[in-house]
Design a binder for these strands. Structure first.
Lengths: 220, 220
DNA sequence: TAATATTTTTAGATGAATCTAAAAATATGT
DNA sequence: ACATATTTTTAGATTCATCTAAAAATATTA
């Protein structure tokens, strides 16, 4: 697989929302900042290789193999994002570009070892799940902190707003990815919350809560 | 700079032994497993970009800018090698191929942060020095353990033989990169050594000693 | 130094990924 | 449903890195 082929597969995956949906030529062109005619060319090639199902003028969808391929790229991308944030202290919104490059590195051993080094994370710094080696998602129930019930416990897995001021706020208040969070109380009037984070009690506004993703412990 | 251009610059650097020596077309072709005619093409392009000095039929050498470029690639390569060995537990002889890919990742911030994460190492797992950001080597005095005097102290920085059996031997005897080593005594008869490694006393054969590189603490 | 061997370059072709411009198919609005 | 708009594909050109085969420059050696 060439670098470019991988990029197309990933784009089709994202546009199809991981569901092998039919995706249009123009949509791919826009997503990849390229021309529709280039997309047609590449899509034909991918079709010949059996990575996508293609019918002219109708659209493309990922084949079974194409889907597996996409998941493996997504897995690499997200593992690298975790690495960049957790080990190299990048901010959550600075990692995408570099991860786009790192995801193309070819070495199964590398990814296995990186995965182990990171402690087998199941979500990336944006709270998106990391596919397993076999291409399976452990399904993650991800909710905004502002939308969960009192007494809900979970793990902070991501941010909605990744602007610098917000990330700085989290830093100052020592709220980080992977922190265990429990909702203690909720103020109906302004939607602000009392939460317990790593055992520490904090009061946060609704504005903050509506930008933090919680991975809910599977209740049943 | 394209990926291919970077590979050529690196090859010219290595063939010229970091000295901006004149390098022949055939030598580059062999080093890169490509054809001389391809080398000529690329070398012309690099010359137009000012990265090398080229005179037809005579050879190429790196320009000042070309040399800086090469050093920055070497820096990235070696930092990644340290990462792979120290953080991901790769064996010393497994890292080259992956580092060849990683060295092309474009992000200054990434390399700065990686450097910090690794504790600003000055040599890679093979004992070769890592150029600074500015392209300078802190000069490293690197000697085979078998060739230093009694009472010499230093840091284990690399291996000459990187075969699996030898690396396994090192593992079993808990000799690793960065370990502090002091030569306590030397047996003239067979060249075997008593050494102290991280405070622990070990006796090693000459065969082992002649495959371990020591970075000598600057004596004067 | 003349003949031969080697090295290096040129000329022209190929494959990958892209583009523009025009043609073909499909979708939309009245 | 028909004319128009939009989407998609085709055809042909371009750029990059590579190749083969042949020509040119340089080196070697008898």
């Amino acid at each position: 697989m060439t670098l470019s082929e991988e990029d197309y597969i990933k784009a089709i995956y994202h546009l199809g929302k991981g569901e092998k949906t039919l995706v249009s030529t123009n949509a791919i062109a826009e997503q990849m900042s390229t021309k529709p005619s280039s997309v047609t060319d590449m899509v034909k090639k991918l079709s010949e290789k059996g990575l996508v199902n293609y019918r002219r003028y109708k659209g493309v969808s990922l084949s079974e193999i194409g889907n597996k391929t996409a998941l493996s790229i997504v897995r690499k991308h997200r593992l690298w994002e975790v690495f960049l944030v957790e080990k190299l202290d990048f901010a959550w919104d600075e990692v995408h570009e570099v991860a786009e490059q790192l995801e193309h590195i070819k070495s199964d051993a590398l990814i296995d070892k990186l995965d182990a080094h990171l402690g087998f994370p199941r979500v990336d710094p944006h709270g998106d799940p990391i596919p397993s080696k076999e291409g399976e998602f452990k399904k993650v129930i991800k909710k905004l902190l502002s939308e969960v019930d009192i007494k809900t416990e979970g793990i902070c897995v991501g941010v909605k707003d990744s602007s610098a001021p917000f990330l700085k706020f989290l830093d100052r208040n020592k709220i980080a990815i992977r922190d265990a969070i429990k909702v203690l109380d909720k103020e109906e009037f302004d939607g602000s919350l009392d939460i317990e984070i790593n055992g520490r009690k904090v009061h946060i506004s609704n504005q903050i809560a509506s930008n933090l993703y919680l991975e809910i412990k599977e209740v049943e």
